[in-house]
Write a protein that binds this DNA or RNA. Sequence first.
DNA 1: CGAGAGCGTTTACAGTTGTAAACTTTAATT
DNA 2: AATTAAAGTTTACAACTGTAAACGCTCTCG
Lengths: 160, 160
Amino acid sequence: MSETLNISDAEWEVMRVVWASGESTSQDITTVLNGKRGWSQSTVKTLLGRLTRKGYLQARKNARHFVYTTHLDEPDSLKQELEGLLSRICSRKIPNLLAYLIEKTPMIAKDRAMLEQVLRNKQVVAEVPCDCYPGQCTCHLHASGTILSQHSNEEISHEN
Amino acid sequence: MSETLNISDAEWEVMRVVWASGESTSQDITTVLNGKRGWSQSTVKTLLGRLTRKGYLQARKNARHFVYTTHLDEPDSLKQELEGLLSRICSRKIPNLLAYLIEKTPMIAKDRAMLEQVLRNKQVVAEVPCDCYPGQCTCHLHASGTILSQHSNEEISHEN
DNA sequence: CGAGAGCGTTTACAGTTGTAAACTTTAATT
DNA sequence: AATTAAAGTTTACAACTGTAAACGCTCTCG
């Protein structure tokens, strides 16, 4: 339905306030972000405008003022942003990345137990296919026709 | 030493080619990215220029042409980009995010075993502190002075 | 040695982002 | 009803991105 979610860093700061309080006035948000980032009311208002235009926030008229709410879910939104980043590397390398994340994330015993449980239930496959475009991953080095010509002695054909 | 790594999506496409082949000429890269994204030689050259200026790529003069290399490590670079995203949510919520990532990442048995091992070795703490700025996380709702003023009690909910 | 091929550099240009001032509309107060 | 304060809207503007054409230097081939 929605296009790819696209929330900038500054916009995310605003979203966090809305997510935290459920409903926020422009003033609420300004108070928080002025404290955290020193932003002026103008800045927050611009961000609110952009987020509303993008459809990520709804402005509802309250007795005196506008109240902003969102239909977006915070963890879901972050997941979407994560997808983009994770697609930057070969899917075969992602488990290693996960290992790193697990190592560096502080957690309590319950978290660890939960993750262990998830892992225990995890279905594995016989082989994870490399999803990279040839020439962007070493998985393809041994593949048949490598796109790259070995730049050595031969001169190059100029296509167009 | 280096500032926060900052590689845009388009630049990353170029980096991937260099990472994959170790050494690439502008032409190598153009070939790959023309195939994958339809980019012209000009586009690739611009990107190469920007990456070189940022210090992410080195241009070394070979016999006839330039060869680009990098000192950056691909997984490390991605980790750095990930940090930025992960700092968008409360550190207490990260384990749940990890659970999601584990679930959705296809892996082979060895990967799962490796992750299980990592988890087994994982040190846990008694409590994970909320690292959010007050007003940006519900962890702070019960904290003493809430920054946000409660806006009026009367609710106007015209939800559709 | 001159011409063309190849490659890096400069310039271009629209769209997004970060930050904010100025302007306008609306609602509360006197 | 006029004034004013608050909130939304418009305008601003530089930096960064995505995409690419034009320009210029150098190396190689004839």
